[in-house]
Amino acid sequence: MAEQGPDWQEAFLQAHALPPAYLDSALKWFAPVANLLVEHQNGARRPLLVAVNGSQGSGKSTLCAYLVSRFRHEHGLVALSLSLDDFYLTRAERQELAASVHPLFATRGVPGTHDMALLLKTLEAMLAGETPVIPRFDKATDDRAPAEAWEYPEAPVDIILLEGWCLGARSVDTAELAVPVNALESLEDTDGAWRDRVNQALATDFPVLYDLVDEWLMLKAPSFDCVYRWRLEQEEKLAQRRAGSGVMSAEEVGRFIQHYQRVTNHCLQQLPRRVNHLFTLDSDRKIESYLAAPGVRG
Rank of each mutant, 00 (worst) to 15 (best):
D211A: 12
L202R: 02
L36V: 10
M248A: 10
S69H: 11
N53R: 00
P111K: 01
S83G: 11
I134F: 04
H40K: 10
T264R: 11
D143W: 00
Y66A: 06
A149P: 00
G109R: 05
L232A: 00
V133M: 09
P146H: 05
L118S: 10
A128E: 08
L209E: 12
A11I: 03
R274T: 10
A221G: 04
M116K: 08
K220S: 13
F279K: 10
L80R: 14
W150K: 00
A178Q: 06
T190W: 12
P103V: 10
R274N: 15
P222G: 12
E233G: 14
P111G: 08
P222I: 05
E74M: 01
I257K: 04
G54R: 04
P20N: 11
Y152H: 15
S171G: 12
H259S: 09
L202V: 06
A169E: 11
Y66S: 04
G295V: 13
E130Q: 14
A193Y: 09
T113N: 10
A21H: 15
F12S: 01
L123V: 10
A92P: 03
E215C: 11
H259Y: 11
I134G: 08
A169R: 02
P47L: 03
P111F: 00
L48K: 05
A34M: 11
D211Q: 15
V181W: 13
V50S: 04
V157E: 05
I134T: 14
A65P: 02
T264D: 06
Q258R: 13
E176T: 12
S81G: 13
L123P: 12
A17S: 12
A21Y: 02
H102A: 03
A239G: 06
P156A: 12
A140Y: 08
L187D: 15
A243C: 15
R242A: 07
K237W: 05
I134Q: 07
R242G: 01
T264L: 10
S83C: 11
F30C: 03
S289N: 12
E252N: 12
R144Q: 09
Y22H: 07
R91P: 06
R170H: 14
F105L: 13
A79Y: 14
D196M: 12
L219N: 09
L123M: 07
L48R: 08
R229Y: 00
G43A: 01
A239D: 09
D282I: 08
Q4C: 07
F87S: 08
P6A: 13
D205H: 11
Q258C: 02
L37V: 12
T131K: 00
R262N: 10
P153V: 04
A125C: 01
Y210T: 03
S289T: 14
K121M: 05
L84Y: 10
K286Y: 06
P19G: 12
Q270E: 15
S81C: 14
L63K: 06
K139D: 09
R229D: 15
E185W: 07
F279M: 05
L123T: 06
L209I: 02
N35M: 13
R46I: 00
T90C: 07
G112W: 00
D24R: 15
F12H: 09
E163W: 02
L187G: 06
R46W: 02
L120P: 00
V101Y: 02
Y210E: 05
I160W: 02
Q14R: 12
K220M: 05
F87D: 00
V33D: 13
Q240V: 10
E252P: 02
G246Q: 09
R136I: 03
V208P: 03
A169Y: 11
G59P: 09
E74T: 09
R241W: 01
A98K: 08
N276C: 07
P222F: 04
